[in-house]
Amino acid sequence: MSTEAVEEKIVKKVSEPLLSKRRKKLVKDPLNEDNPITVQVLGICSALAITIKMEPTIIMGLAVIFTVMFSNLIISVIRDFIPNRIRIIVQLAVVATFVTLVSELLKAYNYPMFKVLGAFVGLIITNCIVMGRLEAFAMGNKPYDSMLDGLGSGLGYAWIILAVSFFREFLGSGSILNFKVFEALGIPYVNNGLMVDSIGAFMILAIIIWIQRIKTGYVEQ
């Protein structure tokens, strides 16, 4: 009896708490210091293409969080069985499965949004954030940790595209989540067409990067 108690103690000591400091770091780091978009320069394509309005951006953010989390989980579970030479194809197949799932769900429950996002749902497959996390993290870490890492990266991506889309919709269409702010307040405002255009996206992202890097003190060489 007593030996069992001792053993249990040892086991408990070895296993980490569900949300230990290290694991919290996995989720928190990608939000700012190690942000996938602004620091690692990954996944920019979709970050710019679908951020004209906030609504599709939220859907896109959720879709990417879902895809990164679960493909990280699956790849991490089967990481010891993947032959090194064909790992890219295996990873792409897993990611493509989840993206197909997302796109079919979207088609079934929110068809107008599916039309708005168009080819960009499919392009999550080649979103470098997903592939980057699979290569850099899931191939060498345990499933639960990988899932948290995916969650962190997904959230880091989501908040940047939300910020970009907020300014683009606010300045470009004078609204927030389709609510016409300036009209409601009675302020005459001429919509800035540059913001609806791709150019506005580049400029806003550049400014966000600038502000963030002043805060974190990160300098690129």
Binding site: S198, A206, W210, I214, Q221
Partner: peptide
């Protein structure tokens, strides 16, 4: 170039300006 703009930030702005030309 200002420190924070070095690299990615400046590249974004250049791409934006090139985009205007392509418009």
């Amino acid at each position: 170039v200002p420190d924070g703009l070095k690299g990615l930030g400046l590249t974004m702005i250049i791409t934006g300006l090139m985009g205007i030309a392509f418009k």
